[in-house]
Each structure stands twice: as C-alpha cells, then as structure tokens.
Design a protein around this nucleic acid. Sequence first.
DNA 1: ACAAAAATGTTGTTTTTTGTTGTTTTTTCA
DNA 2: TGAAAAAACAACAAAAAACAACATTTTTGT
Lengths: 275, 275
Amino acid sequence: MANRMTALTATATDEADTQRNTHRELEILAQLRLSGGSCRVRFLADRLQVSEQTVRRNVRGLEISGLIRKVHGGVQLVDAMTEAPFHQRMNVNASHKKAIAARVADMISDGDSLFLDVGSTTAYVAMALKNHQNLFVVTNSVGVAHTLSTRNNNRVFMAAGELRPHDGGAFGDRAIDFIKQFNTQYAILSVGAINAEAGFMLHDLQEATLSRVAMSRAQTKIIAADSSKFGHRGPIQLAECNSIDIVVTDQPVDNNIATLMNDSDVDVVDGVMNA
Amino acid sequence: MANRMTALTATATDEADTQRNTHRELEILAQLRLSGGSCRVRFLADRLQVSEQTVRRNVRGLEISGLIRKVHGGVQLVDAMTEAPFHQRMNVNASHKKAIAARVADMISDGDSLFLDVGSTTAYVAMALKNHQNLFVVTNSVGVAHTLSTRNNNRVFMAAGELRPHDGGAFGDRAIDFIKQFNTQYAILSVGAINAEAGFMLHDLQEATLSRVAMSRAQTKIIAADSSKFGHRGPIQLAECNSIDIVVTDQPVDNNIATLMNDSDVDVVDGVMNA
DNA sequence: ACAAAAATGTTGTTTTTTGTTGTTTTTTCA
DNA sequence: TGAAAAAACAACAAAAAACAACATTTTTGT
C-alpha cells in the first residue's frame, strides 16, 4: 500500500498513475483484456501462478485506483463495461425522478425555449415534456434530442461531437460554441451534489463548463435533483446558490439548506403539497 | 442478500446500488447480449454450468437493479424498451427492412468504422448493430446515435445542428463540415429511388449533398433499399451506379437493373439464398 | 552483506453463494 | 375445464469465496 503513496516522485502525467502499479497488477489487467473484460479470481490465480489471496490483494489495489471493479467471485475491467452505467442510473430512484420531472414539466408551457443537459433526471424531464407542443429545445444529450425531436412540432438543436460512451452527451469546445448561439427561457440542469457550504456541485469538469455556459444564456435556471444529492459534496462547484432560480426535488430539504436557499432567493419545489 | 443492503453506503449515491453484482451476474448479462437480448433460464443454466435455481437467484438481483426483466421461462435485457420508432415510415415494410438490416449488419465486424445516414432503413441497420462491439459510428441521425451510443464500447460521432422535425436528422453546412472530418470503412446510405437509367436518386437536396460527402470519405459504399424503391425515379441523382460497391435489398431485382449493376461492378445482396 | 520493508503463501475463520429436495404456482394441451 | 408438465419458489446443508493473522520469502536501500 505504502508504495502507492509515494506521491513525491510522481510526475503526475496520466501514465504515471498506472505505472506505479506492481507488475502483477499489469499482468492482471492484461489478462482481463485478453479475457474480454472480466475474469474469476480462481482463473487469475491459476494463470499467474500465484495464490488467490495474492490476486485479491492486487485486485484491491487496482480497485482503489479505479481501473477495475471487484465483484463476488471475480473482477471486471471498468472501461470494458459493455452495459452503460447510464442505463443503470436511469433506474435508480426512478419514481422520484419521474415525480421531479413532472414538476419541472408543469413549469414549462407550449412554445417555450429551454436547454436540457445530460443526466438521468433531465432524461426524465424530456419524457415528461413529450406532450408539450412547439418547444424550442437546445441540448447536448442524444437521449433528450431523441425523445423530443420528431414530435409535436418541436424544434430541437443538438450539439455535435463525440458522444460520451457512458451517457451519450456531447461536450468539448465545439459543443460549447454551439450552445453559445442560443438564448433560452429556461435552463434545466443536473447536479452531482448540493451542499450548504458550497452550493451546487458536479463530479465532472466538462459538465460544469458546459452547464455554466447554458446558465449564462438562460433567463430562468432550474436545478432538478433528487433528495439523495443533498448534503453531499462534489469536487467541482457549478454555481453559488444565488445564481439559481428554482430547485426541484422530491423531499423537503434539510433546514440549513432551506435557509440558505431562502436567503439566496431560490424557490424550492419539493414535491410535497404545500397549502 | 445482506451485501446488497450494506447500510453504511445506504445514503444511496446513485452508483452504490448497482455496483455490487456477482461475477455470475456479469456472465448472465454477457450471455444475454450474445443471445440478442433474451434467453431462457434453462439455457442460461446450461451455458453457465450452474443450476436453474442459481440463475433465478442472480436474475432476481439483476431485476432489482433494473437491468433485466424477468418473464416466465426466461429473461430479457431491459434496454430493448422504449425503442419507439418515431415515424410511420418505420412501420412500412418493416419486416423487409429488418431483413435488409440484418444482411448489412453481417457485413460489419466488431471494431469497424461506418457512416449511417438518416432514413428508416438505416434506423433498422442501427438496431441490427446493437450487439456489435467497439464500432466507430458517424451519423447525422439522432435516432442512429441514440441507438448505438452508450453501448458496447462504441464511439459515436454525431453531427450538430437543428434536427429536422420529420426524421431527426442534422443537415446543413455545419453538419457537412463535421462529416468531412472522418474517413470510415463503410458508408451505409438510403435512397429514394433506384432506376436503370439514372442510378440512385433522392427526393431531398440536403440529403443528397450530405450523402455525397459521406460517400467520398468511405471505402465501401453500401446502399440499403427495399424493393419498393426499384424502378422509380427521384428528382435528384445521388450517384452513378459505378460509384457504389454494394446494394442490399430484399428481393431479386429486375433484369435490366441487374445487368446495370453487374456492368458497374456492384454487388447485389437480395436476401435470397443463392447457392 | 545486512537490516528493513514489502510481498507472498499458509492456515483457520467468517461470510456468501450454490445445489438439493420438496412444495407451490403457472402454463400447456387435450 | 382439468390433468400433466414446466417453471418458480422456499429452506437447509454443502461448497466456494472472502477475509484476517502470522510465517516465510523476496526485494530494497545503505
């Protein structure tokens, strides 16, 4: 383990990270690739002529560095995930996300213009907008574009580029330039975490950059986030609270977050009927 | 079971729930993909060399995490859902188009690069390619992009712009510039009509312009057209016969068209078994 | 070469998964 | 409709896998 911490000598290029692995870890990765992305521990131990315990120890290290995922009975390469995690995420908290999406859709009228970003919750928002008419939609999500184009006389503008394998989103300079062309009434955005100290946070720099552009070109900024996002932290700050207009969630929020929102003039819609 | 509940992580970050599969669950998912999305429990038990009861237990776990759907006697991948064909044209000659699409998919190998244009037949080709891996896909169709992105480690590049309301396609200079960046092994194209005198024809100038660019950047040009297209005329000529490599259709073609194709070194695949 | 550190193998224990048996539910076919 | 067959389910013993602690070997630094 300690060898993993010798950060001083790390030149910190992307390669340096993987080079710090032991040779056996490299062998495990190679064998995983040969085997189509996943192996049993037993098999690896046999192939590499070491005990299963040793394989487990190396596997633990690799899992910490995020290259593989450990499952009972075996291991799996992370980048060989043939099934998109995005699809999985769509099914987590699905009922809450649907409820949130319905609330957001209520705020949008026929003919409105809006930006929708990439995210499982915004995918549900797109579905909830299926019966709206004449929408002017800007998005960088292929799922959103597919849901809302060729329907109800909507006009859909999608950003170009390589679509990220895990969520079908287009990012990068080209996408940002595309987004900059527009000025929408609403920007409907996802977040990774919401926190009383730091406000709205994300786990991905590309997403944050693009979301900020979309925010700057929209009159009303709406954050759609299920309650599991609250009270956590993310590495990247998307925005201060006072730059957001509405937060839509599924449960009443924590007290200190509620006061923060209130102080910043953020409307919180929490899915609970309030007289 | 208990491992699925590990209460410490139960703050339900979206990933945490779905990450804990066993290796057998991975194997089941892999087998399902190999088998085109659905299998019988018996078959899975046989393939994986375990009892049916074990398969059922793992299947239950996968169903809870939303990845598959359980039916009496078997299981199916859940992502086959919501494949809403977005237009009536998709349902015209659907069985023929599916057959054509299957033929085209047979020509493509894992890891190949290809361009797919906007069209109902190419939409079926995209579906037929769902079980391919590591594809490099360039398209201006939001439907194609949605079908093939976030799957099987494919890389999907989609052209930007306003999506046409009737077919979800991106056209225009911006899209053409985007397409020009690529050089693919295959270009798979639709046509509006095929005619012994004029060759391949379209009804839409935008489509023709973009298709020509795609053709010029591909090694093998494949036209996918059902038999209803033959013998008709369209206002715009896409290409002479000799610039096309393969035509895939569902029925044997007319004699004079067949000779024309033959003279122009075009392979005609007509879906009929030929000894 | 020597000592310290790291990695590996071994053994025993705990946890998780699997096979088996028998029962209940659902489907099939007459 | 009703009986036979197939599939799903439940519970418990057995097997497999993961884990922890300690002894042994290999590597590293001086």
